[in-house]
Amino acid sequence: MAYPVFRPLCMALSTLALSCAMLTTLTLSAHAAPERQQVIVDMDIGDDIDDSFALALLLQSPEIEIVGVTTAWGDTALRARLVERMLRETGHSGIPVATGIATTGNPQPFTQARYAQRGQPAPALPAVDFLLEQIRRQPGKITLLALGPLTNVGAAIERDAATFGKLKQVVMMGGSVRSGYRKSQYVTARPADKEYNIASEVKGAQRLFTSGVPIVMMPVDSTQIRLDEVERNALLGHGSPVTDALALMYHQWINAYQPWSSNMPSLFDLVPVAWLLDPTVCPTTPLRIAVTDDGYTREVAGKPNAAVCLASNQPRFFEIFMGRLLADKP
Rank of each mutant, 00 (worst) to 15 (best):
L145P: 01
V281A: 08
Y296P: 00
R182T: 05
N233K: 15
S179C: 01
M217K: 00
E201M: 11
R88N: 09
Y250P: 01
A307I: 08
A127I: 11
L125N: 07
F110K: 05
L208R: 03
A127R: 03
D160L: 04
T15F: 14
P241E: 09
C10N: 01
L147R: 04
L144D: 02
R207K: 11
S52F: 15
V187W: 04
L235N: 03
G212K: 03
G239D: 08
S61N: 08
M1E: 10
V271E: 00
V271M: 07
L18E: 05
G140K: 04
A33Q: 12
G100N: 03
G140T: 11
G174I: 09
L246D: 06
T143E: 05
L150K: 11
A234V: 08
F53C: 06
P62E: 14
K303E: 13
I101A: 12
K141F: 14
Q112H: 01
G212C: 07
Y296V: 04
V97H: 04
M217I: 06
N233T: 14
F110W: 01
K329V: 12
A2M: 09
T104R: 04
M218T: 04
V273K: 10
S261D: 11
P109N: 00
T292Q: 10
V170H: 02
D44S: 15
D293G: 15
D47Y: 13
G154S: 12
S222A: 15
E89K: 10
L235K: 09
P8A: 14
T71G: 07
H238Y: 15
F318V: 07
A156P: 00
L87H: 05
T90R: 00
V41Q: 03
S222T: 13
M217S: 01
I254P: 02
Q224T: 06
G46V: 07
A199C: 06
S61V: 03
D228I: 08
L235W: 12
P107K: 02
S61D: 04
V170G: 01
S240W: 12
A72W: 01
P4K: 04
A80H: 03
A72E: 15
D75Y: 07
R136D: 12
A54Y: 11
G302S: 13
D278G: 09
V281K: 05
F110L: 15
V273H: 08
L26W: 06
A21E: 06
T297G: 00
P191G: 14
A327E: 06
V213E: 08
D51V: 02
G239P: 04
A306L: 03
L287V: 00
R81Y: 07
D129W: 02
R85C: 05
S19E: 06
M1P: 07
F268A: 07
S19C: 15
T163W: 10
A113C: 05
S222I: 05
M86E: 13
I45V: 15
I64M: 08
Q314P: 04
S240N: 10
Q37W: 09
I320Q: 09
S312D: 02
P283A: 10
R324Y: 08
R324C: 08
S29D: 01
P149I: 01
I45A: 15
I45R: 08
M173D: 03
W275I: 06
Y3F: 14
E201D: 12
A98R: 04
D269A: 13
E63P: 09
A256R: 01
I101P: 01
A146L: 15
L248C: 10
D278L: 10
A290W: 01
Q134P: 02
S266A: 09
T210I: 06
A56K: 10
G74K: 04
E195R: 02
